[in-house]
Design a protein around this nucleic acid. Structure first.
Ligand SMILES: [Mn+2]
Ligand SMILES: [Mn+2]
Ligand SMILES: [Zn+2]
Ligand SMILES: [Zn+2]
Lengths: 141, 141
DNA sequence: TCAACAGTTTAGAATTATTCTAAAGAGACT
DNA sequence: AGTCTCTTTAGAATAATTCTAAACTGTTGA
């Protein structure tokens, strides 16, 4: 017989955490479930905290910050810097690029094949390339 | 006979300000001279303020922030967001791209021809592309 | 030449995002 | 259960940035 969806989601989250070497605590499980339940998301710590609170998950804002950074270090999330006043966390960890609309503070993935970035430049001496970030800034017209 | 370099720099700064529609006040003139005296620079408000103070220019940090934003709006500077905790201002307003080294908090221009960004994607409906930011993150190895 | 107005500067307070502290709580292992 | 370690949390602290409102200055036209 089939397990309930909730149980399955919980086990999936727990496994994800174990694989990342993070102790599967209640808070981390709940946050993982919110983060990874549907499609790719771009969230700030405040946004995720608000969502958790709205769904009755008891967790502090400090823990949300800690968890987002731990998930990022573990490779479960990507941190995206586009706005000088907020940090976004991205559940899509594949190599991809973003549209950012300052007017509406919205960050979205660029669909389809990536913008081709050809001929990567030689990095400054003593350094190696870690990542190439491409952000296409758009405005409402 | 030739004018002194200082006078010339001052007049250049004043003209730049007038062209930008900004009243050429003492503070704006001095900051413009510091910003544009040699080559391209990538500075935070704190950095520019420290430099001004070190050179005996009397100006408050609030004015440095105001001025950097006014210059940016006027197209004399570009604001570059790479670090979640600081904003850089770039005197190079040409279309170009950056290396960012988190280890040493350094932002530098990518020399030579730009990374070719081919096939710009279609922006989300109701929006148009304003700018494409490319940041190559590097780490010390 | 100078008064009058509009634009500018400033110190200091306020705001906002984020991080720190240190004490209480909860998984893991036996 | 008992112990150890890791985690969570409220609240304080920090850091970058913005705001406020009063003093100041560049510009203009009489
Ligand atoms: Mn900031
Ligand atoms: Mn910040
Ligand atoms: Zn994304
Ligand atoms: Zn630059």
């Amino acid at each position: 017989m089939r397990k309930k969806l909730r149980e399955t989601a919980h086990e999936t989250a727990t496994m994800r955490l174990r694989q990342a070497g993070l102790r599967p605590t209640r808070q981390r499980n709940e946050l993982a479930k919110l983060l990874f339940r549907d499609g790719h998301r771009h969230l700030t710590a405040e946004m995720l905290h608000a969502e958790a609170v709205a769904e009755g998950v008891k967790v502090s804002l400090a823990t949300v910050y800690n968890t987002l950074h731990q998930f990022t270090q573990a490779g479960l999330l990507l941190q995206v810097v586009v706005d000088p006043t907020r940090s976004y966390f991205d559940t899509n960890t594949a190599d991809h690029q973003h549209f950012y609309c300052e007017d509406e503070n919205s960050l979205t993935d660029i669909p389809g094949p990536e913008i081709s970035v050809a001929d990567l430049p030689t990095p400054p001496p003593g350094t190696e390339i870690k990542r190439v970030d491409v952000v296409v800034h758009v405005r409402r017209h």
